[in-house]
Design a protein around this nucleic acid. Structure first.
Lengths: 186, 186
DNA sequence: TACTAAACTGACTAATCAGTCTATATTAAT
DNA sequence: ATTAATATAGACTGATTAGTCAGTTTAGTA
């Protein structure tokens, strides 16, 4: 990826999170990235292509944090906890990316093509975990509900940590994971 | 409240949820509400005043669903469950309002004055519950973390129900509440 | 009926928008 | 050294924006 292309992606990430799609003009993005508007449209045919590539960029970053960590020798709980903590840590370390993903995952400007492309890869990365999900020490409720509850607890934990920056992060992570785990346990 | 004022609020609610603040022009709002742009600015000095009044309108609707239902004769769990279910039902019955509240609660266009005005009233409505929260059969973790986890589980439940409309709503509500309750229980 | 204030209208304006276009600079290959 | 392709620039354009304003209609009252 070219340097200016990356500068444009990083500048627009911040601006889109702060002011939304229509609240962020291509002129502002170009200025903030230190390039001319012509350069922006050289790398991205339209503003919509820009935000779609940005969505892929953000989700790929998140995917990178959770890939290849499943350890078959460890318990189901230990694996799930590692996954849960990794995603919370991603939310803390990359707050703009995390917020961008949350804000735009059901935006009309992100095409279903874009979502398909990355969602499939995310599901594959989670496959090892889902196998365990079905025959372990957890409640007998639908896989989809467990996953949505898992993601919901991650989001609310990241929000909480950002809302109370004076609190001890590690303690909150432990407590919040227990809230999730004791919920899904038999 | 005048009829046209209400038409403007309802039209803008839908449009703001679908297209965001800057994606929704005052011309579109006026047209969708069946009034002239001059009428819109007669009732709302600026677009920002409109979205702030809309935020109050949405949060007051939600407040209305949970006020005055605390029953001192019932158990803590029964009261919390009634509150939890009421909020999930609000999310199902008024999806646009629910989504609007989620999308704009940390938007730069909603002033801190607006938030103060309604947040205080919400906290008062929840006061009866919070008293119980501190000396009941739940885990000894911070009140703020419990509240954020409570709200997170409501949001993820509403999202889940909207995502899988073919599933039995009552069953999901029971299961999702149990996920929350078993999480916070000792 | 006549008067008044509030409700309502839509054409209008200066500013800003996404995207284009032409021109110049840089790079890579031969 | 020449050429071709790519990278970069910013002035420019037609469309759209939030908000104004001068005037018209409606509703209440005396």
């Amino acid at each position: 990826m070219k340097e200016k292309e990356l500068q444009i992606l990083n500048a627009s990430l911040k601006l889109f999170v702060e002011n939304g799609f229509h609240g962020t003009s291509t002129a502002k993005i170009a200025k903030s990235a230190g390039v001319a508007t012509g350069t922006l449209f050289h790398y991205f045919k339209t503003k919509e292509e820009l935000i779609n590539r940005l969505y892929l960029y953000a989700k790929e970053s998140m995917l990178g944090e959770i890939s290849g960590h499943y350890n078959i020798e460890k318990s189901f709980k230990e694996n799930i906890k590692y996954l849960w903590i990794s995603l919370v840590d991603f939310g803390i370390k990359k707050p703009e990316m995390f917020q961008f993903i949350l804000s735009f995952h059901c935006s009309p400007y992100i095409t279903s093509l874009t979502k398909e492309e990355i969602e499939n890869r995310l599901e594959m990365a989670l496959e090892s975990y889902t196998v365990g999900l079905k025959k372990q020490e957890i409640k007998n409720i639908s896989y989809e509900l467990i996953v949505d509850f898992l993601w919901g607890s991650i989001v609310s934990t990241v929000d909480h940590i950002e809302k109370y920056p004076e609190k001890a992060v590690d303690k909150i992570k432990e407590q919040a994971f227990d809230l999730f785990w004791d919920g899904i346990s038999q």
